[in-house]
Measured scan of single mutants.
Amino acid sequence: VSVELPAPSSWKKLFYPNKVGSVKKTEVVFVAPTGEEISNRKQLEQYLKSHPGNPAIAEFDWTTSG
Rank of each mutant, 00 (worst) to 15 (best):
F60S: 01
F30C: 01
P17R: 12
G66C: 13
K42F: 14
F30Q: 00
V3G: 06
K19L: 14
L14R: 07
I38N: 00
W62G: 01
E59N: 06
T64I: 14
S50I: 09
K24I: 14
G53Q: 05
H51P: 00
S65W: 09
P55V: 06
V3E: 07
N40K: 04
L44F: 01
G53D: 08
S10K: 15
S65G: 12
F15V: 14
A58Y: 13
T34S: 07
E59R: 05
T63Y: 07
S2A: 14
K12G: 05
P52F: 04
Y47T: 00
V28R: 01
E36L: 04
T64F: 12
E45P: 00
K12D: 03
N40R: 04
T34E: 03
E45C: 09
S2F: 15
S22R: 08
V23L: 14
P33F: 03
E59K: 05
H51F: 06
P55F: 05
N18S: 12
K19W: 12
V1C: 15
Q43Y: 05
G53V: 04
W62L: 02
F60T: 01
A58P: 04
H51R: 03
P6L: 07
V23W: 10
I38Y: 03
R41T: 10
E59S: 07
V23G: 15
N18R: 10
V3P: 06
L44S: 00
P52D: 06
T63I: 06
P33V: 02
H51I: 02
S9N: 14
S50H: 09
L44R: 00
R41V: 13
W62R: 01
G35Y: 02
K12W: 04
K24E: 14
E36W: 02
G66I: 11
D61V: 07
T34P: 01
K12F: 05
E27H: 15
S50E: 13
A58M: 09
A32G: 02
S39I: 13
E37A: 11
E27K: 15
N18L: 10
E59Y: 06
A56I: 07
F60H: 01
V1A: 11
D61I: 08
A32H: 00
V1P: 14
H51E: 02
K25T: 11
W11T: 02
K42Y: 14
E37S: 10
V23A: 14
Y16L: 07
A58G: 12
K25A: 12
P33Y: 02
N54C: 05
V28C: 05
E27I: 15
N54T: 07
K25S: 11
V31T: 04
H51Q: 03
F15S: 06
V23E: 15
S65R: 10
S22T: 11
V23Y: 11
K24G: 15
V20A: 12
L48A: 00
I57S: 07
P33M: 02
F60Q: 01
F60M: 01
G21E: 07
V23C: 14
P6D: 08
N18P: 10
K24D: 15
V29E: 02
T34M: 03
S2N: 08
S9C: 15
W62M: 02
Y16D: 02
P55T: 04
A56M: 08
E59M: 08
W11G: 00
H51S: 03
P17A: 10
T34Y: 02
V31F: 08
G66P: 12
T26M: 13
F30H: 01
N18K: 10
P8Q: 04
V31N: 02
T34R: 02
P33C: 02
E37H: 15
V23F: 12
V28P: 02
E27T: 15
S50D: 13
T26H: 14
Y16T: 07
P52C: 03
G21S: 09
K42A: 13
N18E: 09
K25V: 11
S9P: 15
V28Y: 04
F60E: 01
F15D: 02
T63F: 06
S65P: 15
N40F: 05
T26R: 12
K13Y: 03
K49V: 09
Q43V: 08
N54P: 06
S65I: 10
L5W: 07
L44G: 00
P52Y: 04
S39W: 15
P55H: 06
D61L: 06
H51N: 07
V23T: 14
I38R: 00
Y16Q: 06
G21Q: 07
L48C: 02
F30D: 00
H51V: 02
T64Y: 14
W11L: 01
Q46R: 11
V1D: 12
P52T: 06
N18I: 10
I57F: 13
L5M: 11
K12A: 06
K13T: 03
P52W: 04
A32C: 02
G35A: 02
D61Q: 07
